[in-house]
Design a protein around this nucleic acid. Structure first.
Length: 561
RNA sequence: GGCCCAUUGGUCAAGCGGUUAAGACGCAGCCCUCUCAAGGCUGAAUCAUGGGUUCGAUUCCCGUAUGGGUCACCA
């Protein structure tokens, strides 16, 4: 029996049930019939139920690149590490992606259902496919059984470290690669436990070039490690699964985190050994956080904002997070947004080669700004809808409050928003809304004034406050236009000795009792118990005449006691 | 430690051999203004460092420093 025949015997011994070949798989998963330039991308997380901000970042790029080129965006679940699996992890992930409008064309759409012809899309269900590939490589002598135990490997690493050698299973240190096929067969027949390793033909003395879409050419040492291809549980390692899956799912561009750069040389060799065409790589930068002056990766344990669920819980609109991420992905996004004020971010074209390759610090303050902008583009109806959806889950008190009188709530939301010449930009997240509008709700307003009014006593004394309130109650009317209303307020203010022209007042403050701003300030506090609010005319219009007068009178009486 | 990646204001960054080195956030000031938010204007603030290459380097090359990543039967 020659060596080739022996290898076949070995392959059959290891995988007796596998009869198909890579060629069969090539037929089953044919090249896609897509337009020229169409990109097939994939997001391939582990089903931990936790969507990291970096994952959202990556999947957003995946989706944009696929959509823009009329390609396909696949969601594949990498569940080959059963220790990491979490119950309902897949559906949790999909739900979170959907919350941000990241929708895949293909792959998992629920815990068990999937779209597309290139499945299964869970790696644990692709065992057969990996085995077909592994078997073929055994026949070619490129995969061999390794009988080393965990202790063997520990010892090896230790001695390598001591001898200042590159650690790993390679070359002269790869004990099992040197067994003859007969020896290997014999060991297996004797029920020795084994895993399958790749036989690398590379040398770290030679260089190899990776062409990265984001970074350009990356030069590194060839792979020479005999990495594990199939683990003892029968499932593949990431490396092997990456090559097999991305090939047979006909992925064109693998967008992945930069932590994969060092293993790219290995992946190249794997593709080569399997006879696959290389995929293109786009290694994305890591999103970092400033921690006492030093950059570090956003950590799942230390940083709540590493989970996208954080932003949902806080009440940031999904689009805010996406648009913020887009500003990191392509910094000309902001220019585009300025030129296309009402457009949807989906219409923005992401350019992979314009990505900055250094890790960006996550900037909450910038997020806040982007988010204010996003919210300011919403009509009161749209905003209300989003807030209700959010509050239903995360703030039931708010949900109930807003629902007590939806028509009224709509009017509250419309203040300085609908038909306004200048739209308020003071909400960055839904959580900001209640602290800034609570006074529009009688019950909350009354609770708040229980502990006293916040009149600015440094400006006016009690008697002046009373005087203003009395004066204003006398002239208040709901039916005036804003201009007429303000003229009446000025008229009254003037009578009481206040300056109605701010410029004039600023020049000679001592000539007056105070300014028109002080007068409206008193009315404002009486109505809202806040010194800063939106336009009080608009507020009074929503409160209605009765409630307005009630509040003013109440303030007057409390102040007098 | 080996290998890899990165380095333009406080932050995100444009720039691709000759620029007064864009823009955004933030900050400061002014204007507008019934307060605030917004808006308008103005301002302070940047090419990590040392060598080359070049008539000329932020831009190209090498070294150094700093930061990050990676060296598993985890992905």
């Amino acid at each position: 029996m020659n060596n080739e025949e022996k290898l076949i015997e070995l392959a059959d011994l290891i995988f007796p049930d596998i009869t198909e070949t890579i060629a069969d798989l090539e037929k089953r998963y044919p090249k896609r019939d897509l337009e020229e330039g169409a990109e097939v991308t994939r997001f391939a997380p582990s089903p931990t139920g936790f969507l990291h901000i970096g994952g959202l970042f990556g999947s957003l790029i995946d989706m944009k690149v696929a959509n823009q080129s009329k390609g396909k965006f696949i969601l594949r679940i990498e569940d080959t590490d059963r220790k990491r699996e979490v119950e309902n992890g897949v559906i949790e992930l999909i739900t979170q992606m959907r919350a941000f409008n990241i929708i895949n064309d293909e792959g998992l759409v629920s815990e068990t259902e999937a779209l597309g012809e290139y499945g299964p899309y869970k790696q644990s269900e692709r065992e057969y496919i990996y085995k077909v590939c592994a078997k073929e490589l055994i026949k070619k002598g490129r995969v061999y059984p390794c009988f080393c135990t965990a202790e063997d490997l520990d010892k090896l690493r230790e001695s390598q470290e001591k001898a200042k050698q590159i650690p790993g299973y390679y070359g002269q240190y790869a004990r099992c690669r040197n067994y003859s096929v007969d020896e290997a067969i014999e060991r297996i027949k004797n029920n020795k436990e084994y895993i399958l390793r790749f036989r690398s033909l590379g040398s770290h003395l030679r260089k190899v070039k990776i062409n990265d879409i984001i970074r350009g050419k990356i030069e590194m040492a060839q792979n020479d490690q005999d990495i594990v291809v199939i683990k003892s549980d029968g499932l593949p390692t990431y490396h092997f699964a990456h090559a097999v899956d991305d090939h047979f799912m006909r992925v064109t561009t693998a967008v992945r985190g930069e932590e994969w750069i060092p293993s790219s040389a290995l992946h190249m060799e794997l593709f080569e050994a399997l006879g696959f065409e290389q995929v293109k790589y786009a290694h994305t930068p890591t999103i970092m956080k400033n921690d006492n002056g030093s950059k570090r990766k956003l950590s799942k344990r230390k940083d709540p904002e590493s989970a996208v669920s954080f932003f949902i819980e806080e009440g940031y609109p999904a689009d805010s997070v996406i648009e913020y991420l887009l500003t990191i992905i392509n910094s000309d996004y902001e220019l585009w947004r300025k030129a296309n004020k009402t457009a949807n971010w989906r219409d923005f074209e992401v350019k992979l080669n314009k990505l900055n390759s250094s890790g960006a610090l996550f900037d909450m303050i910038k997020l806040t700004d982007v988010s204010k902008e996003v919210i300011s583009r919403l009509s009161s109806t749209e905003l209300l809808e989003l807030v209700l959806e959010w509050a239903k889950i995360y703030d039931t008190n708010l949900y109930n409050l807003l629902n007590e009188d939806l028509e009224y709530t709509k009017k509250v939301f419309a203040i300085e928003r609908d038909n306004a010449t200048k739209i308020r930009k003071d909400f960055a997240k839904y959580k900001d809304i209640l602290p800034n509008t609570f006074y529009m709700y009688n019950r909350l307003y009354r609770e708040d004034i229980n502990s006293g009014f916040n009149f600015d006593s440094s400006k006016l004394d009690i008697n002046s406050v009373k005087e203003i309130l009395e004066g204003y109650i006398g002239i208040h009317s709901d039916s005036l236009s804003k201009e007429d209303w303000f003229n009446k307020v000025k008229e009254m203010a003037e009578k009481l000795g206040y300056c109605t022209n701010m410029k004039e007042y600023k020049q000679n403050p001592d000539d007056f009792k105070g300014s028109i701003a002080d007068v409206t300030g008193v009315i404002r506090v009486a109505l809202t118990n806040r010194q800063n609010t939106p336009d009080i005319y608009a507020i009074m219009q929503v409160l209605g005449e009765k409630e307005t007068i009630d509040r003013l009178k109440n303030a007057l009486s409390m102040k007098g006691e």
